[in-house]
Structures are given as structure tokens and as C-alpha cells.
Write a protein that binds this DNA or RNA. Structure first.
Lengths: 181, 181
DNA sequence: CACTACATGTAATATGTTACATGATTGC
DNA sequence: GCAATCATGTAACATATTACATGTAGTG
């Protein structure tokens, strides 16, 4: 599974604690890979056993100590191998499409209501992404290789939110013009 | 979880055996919700316990008997309720974006190779969808409400494959112009 | 004084994957 | 005769989700 790869990818250019990673999985990498902190801590243990990462206890005043993880050369090679090996297309699971698929069961207006709710959520996410893009553009002068690659993933986020919104428009209009109901 | 909803949606306008459903989850609904036959059989047992569906043994000559499932009124209402209740955006898990995110670890050409592989897979899937669309267009004259709703999900499939391909183009070009490596 | 952020964990349950098992029919 | 399709299932294992647990520090 790829949670391990997502963690290794996060650690590929920086060190993080489990807590930091959980936050990353709530933004950044989290935009295309979700995980709870419980999953992350469990996976970190496995990755350390496999010698793909190692950890160091950092004492902190006031706050509880933290364990900071860094990727090993073995871990990097493992990631590199996976990146270059062809993988299948990731499978998507879209609840909204199940809803539309069985949409004939409910009054048209109710379905449209839910479609509008989802469209709104995508709109909000798009705004978040654009904000992040703004930051990126500033950094572009002093940009490192790493940053540019991350920017590409952000671009896909922006494009896809726009595409979702366009499909919602099309779908809502189509339904609005259906005579039934 | 929504596997149950996906099954109920499939049964919303027809009766199917577990085997039939497994096939549906390999095409049709399967384009936005994957499940293996084991998952499906397990879920069917639960749905029957909950009285959302009921089954009938159908004797067949030659072939093993099959149990055909149909949705109950309770099941339909359960689905209806879920459709109209607002749900969160579905989370996506995209391996290719993890690969791009950590792309700085490998030679640029290797990453491009994998991007091209993925783009090719999307291209193939788009061709499949367009073939299905062709069928739909023929049926549109004799079209039922159900068919039109299904068509909307297909439209999203087509739009999104096109969008993926466009992002791959953009990304591959961007990488090709990077000086490094 | 309640809430949020920091920091890590256990336990139970739900989902998903992989392998194995059975047995008939149809097509090459 | 061998593979594929029809049809359903068990068992073991891997992943993911939800709830609960613990304790400090800073903010309003």
C-alpha cells in the first residue's frame, strides 16, 4: 500500500515527527492522500523496523518530547524504485456519483440541492488552493527542485477543482431542464 | 461506508445476483466504486439482515443456482435518505501525485516515463468511455429517467479523463523544459 | 476556566485484499 | 483437453476508522 510511500515522500526532503506528519496529511500531501494520526504512528513503526527511516528523541521544555523521523538511504532507494516502477491507475471512490446514479429515486430538486452543496465545497477548496498557489509564486524565484515538483501537484488540485465545478454546472443545468418531477 | 449504498444504487432499478453485481463493480458503477466479489457477498448478507434487500433462489439448468437480490421499500427509503443528506467530499488517493511530489529523487526522464505510462492508461479509459457514450446516444430516444442519470455519471468520467490527460501534457512539458538532470 | 495546540498512544470495529476451494458449461 | 465464464463461498491478513486515554502549555 501507498501510505508508506506517502510518508516516505513527506520525509524525502525534511525531518518530521509523527505529529507533524499527521498535520501534513491534513494539508499538503493530504490533498491527495488522507491518513489519521493512528495510521501514521503505526506505519512509522513498520518503516523503522524495515530501516527505511530512523528516529531521534528530541527533548523539549514545556511540551512533551517528540520523536523526529528521517529517511535513510535504504528508504530513499525504496521510494526511488517505487516511483519509477509503473503502477496501475489509482481507483477513485466518489459518493456523489452513486447519488447521481440512483438520483431517479428522489425528487429532482433534492438532488440538485445536494449537488449545489458539493459544488460549494469544491469552490471553497479551490479558494484554498489558489491561496497556496499565491505563496508558491512568491517562492518561485528562490525555488528549489523540490518546490517545483510540489507545485505540479498543486496545479493538478486547482485544475481538478475547476473541472468538478464545471461538471456540477453542466449537471445542475441538465437536471433543471428535465421535465419530470 | 458507501459500499452498501453503491450496491443499493445498483439494485435501485433492477435485480441482480452477487455475481452480476461483481461484474457491475467491474464496469458501470465500478468506474467510481471498486469492490471485489468477496466484499459484495459479505455486504449482501448484511443488507439482507437489515431488510434493505431480499433474495430469491433461482434454479438454473446446467449452471449453479443463483440468488437474485432485490431492494425493499425500506432499502429504497434508506437510500433516498442518504442521497438527500449532505455528505462530505469524497477523499481521493492518487499514487501518481505522491510520485510527482517526491519526483526530485529520481532522474527527470524516469519520472516522465511513468507520467507517460499513466497518461496512456487514461487515454485508453477515455476510449472505453466514449464507446459506452456511443451506446447511450442511441438509447436516448427511448430513454428512461434512470438512463439519463447514469449518463450524467458517464459524462463526469469522460470530462475527468480529458482533464487528467491535459494535466499530464502540462506536467510532462514543464518537466521537459527544466534544465536539471 | 475552557479551549486549542502539542505529542503519542491503545483497543475495538469496519473495510478491503489475497489466496484458496468447488463444480458445472461453453468455446477453442 | 484447457481455459474461460458462471456462481458462491471460507479464511487469513492488511488497512482504515472511531472512540478513548493521557498530560503539558498557552490563549482568551
Amino acid at each position: 500500500m501507498s501510505l508508506s510511500h506517502a510518508i516516505l515522500a513527506s520525509l524525502s526532503d525534511n525531518t518530521y515527527s509523527g505529529y507533524d506528519l499527521a498535520k501534513q496529511f491534513d494539508g499538503s500531501v493530504g490533498f491527495f492522500w488522507k491518513a489519521t494520526h493512528q495510521q501514521i504512528y503505526r506505519e512509522l513503526r513498520k518503516l523503522e523496523e524495515a530501516k527505511f527511516i530512523n528516529s531521534q528523541e528530541i527533548a523539549q521544555e514545556g511540551r512533551p518530547n517528540k520523536r523526529v523521523f528521517s529517511i535513510t538511504e535504504t528508504g530513499k532507494n525504496h521510494l526511488r524504485k517505487w516511483i519509477t516502477e509503473p503502477t496501475e491507475l489509482s481507483t477513485t471512490k466518489e459518493e456523489i456519483l452513486i447519488k447521481v446514479f440512483a438520483g431517479h429515486l428522489v425528487p429532482k430538486t433534492k438532488l440538485i440541492q445536494e449537488l449545489e452543496h458539493q459544488r460549494y465545497c469544491h469552490q471553497e477548496r479551490l479558494t484554498v488552493y489558489k491561496g497556496i498557489e499565491h505563496q508558491f509564486v512568491r517562492d518561485v524565484n528562490a525555488d528549489s527542485r523540490e518546490v517545483r515538483y510540489k507545485y505540479l501537484t498543486l496545479r493538478r488540485g486547482i485544475r481538478f477543482e475547476k473541472e468538478w465545478i464545471a461538471w456540477y454546472e453542466e449537471t445542475i443545468n441538465f437536471l433543471a431542464e428535465l421535465p419530470e418531477d
